[in-house]
């Protein structure tokens, strides 16, 4: 029963418990963690594990809570009115369903992903409190109450850009994805590239964790960067030795652009490597 670590997605036991608690009690699960630690993918995996359809709602800074429920397209209606279209007489023609409505209307259980909730305005989570609690809302224009046929599983991710209101937090289960340790990371790599050369993976992971340790990086590379980088290394068919740095020299890893996406970080790194070579 429930959600388990798979050979595609490596979930720690605490994550399994948190997911299953949220699913069982039908409360939202809030997932936080460094960027690229598998928050978004988690929702896909949960949907897969439960055999449910996934509805994804990606939040932007301009997203409003109401858009997840429905929007009233007044502009089209006005336009139709001016053009003398018959549709104009029924307001329902201009009610556009949002993602949550879609999820509520489904006959089967749905997994809803509300991705990067912290991107939105601070009021956003508060504006969804009641809807997520009761899984229902009212459409003023048509005087209709929409109630979830089956309470969906709601997974919410946050990158911590803004703090979330207490009232919202109280209703969620919470899981913080810790950055994977080396052993877990090996399993994640294995999950994505089962055919990768053993020694290449080993050397690459060593370099990867070393790069993460460089002080002052603006954006430490995470799982997603590691996976991208490994793919490049494999495509280029680099020998593992190319990754090994000698005692004295900090090596700039080949194709490091995949690991360090921030220009400042690349500079910082190159400078460090340069200094070490000069002093070495």
């Amino acid at each position: 029963m429930g959600f388990r670590s798979t050979d595609r997605y490596i979930a720690s036991r605490d994550l399994e418990v948190a997911v299953n608690a949220a699913v069982t009690l039908q409360r939202p699960l809030l997932v936080k963690g460094e960027p690229g630690t598998g928050k978004t993918v988690l929702a896909h995996e949960v949907a897969q594990a439960l055999g449910c359809r996934l509805i994804e709602w990606h939040i932007k800074s301009t997203t409003k809570a109401q858009q997840g429920l429905y929007e009233y397209d007044a502009v089209s209606r006005l336009r139709d009115g001016q053009l003398g279209d018959e549709r104009v007489h029924d307001i329902a023609n201009y009610i556009v369903r949002g993602k949550l409505w879609d999820a509520f209307a489904a006959d089967e259980k749905i997994v809803v992903l509300i991705d990067e909730v912290d991107k939105a305005d601070i009021e956003f989570p508060n504006d969804l409190l009641l809807e997520l609690d009761r899984m229902q809302f009212f459409v003023y224009e048509t005087r209709q109450t929409v109630t979830a046929k089956q309470r969906p599983v709601v997974i919410i991710t946050s990158n911590n850009e803004k703090e979330l209101p207490d009232a919202f937090l109280r209703r969620c289960f919470f899981h913080y994805i810790r950055f994977p340790d080396r052993e877990t990371m090996e399993r994640i790599v294995q999950a994505h590239y089962p055919d990768i050369r053993h020694d290449l993976a080993r050397e690459a992971l060593t370099v990867f964790f070393k790069v993460r340790d460089v002080p002052g990086l603006k954006k430490k590379p995470a799982t997603s960067e590691l996976l991208d980088w490994l793919k490049l290394l494999m495509v280029e068919d680099l020998p593992p030795e190319a990754l090994r740095s000698t005692e004295k020299h900090v090596l700039i890893p080949p194709l490091h652009g995949a690991l360090l996406k921030n220009e400042q970080d690349v500079h910082l790194f190159e400078r460090l490597a340069f200094l070490s070579r000069r002093n070495g």
Binding site: A18, L169, F173, F174
Partner: peptide, 23 residues
């Protein structure tokens, strides 16, 4: 509901997921 049926660790994880909302 039996979410933490199997071990005391599970109970720990469960109570953490339920009670702590901030890393």
């Amino acid at each position: 509901a039996g979410v933490a049926e199997y071990s005391i660790e599970d109970f720990y994880y469960l109570s953490r997921a339920a009670l702590v909302k901030d890393e």
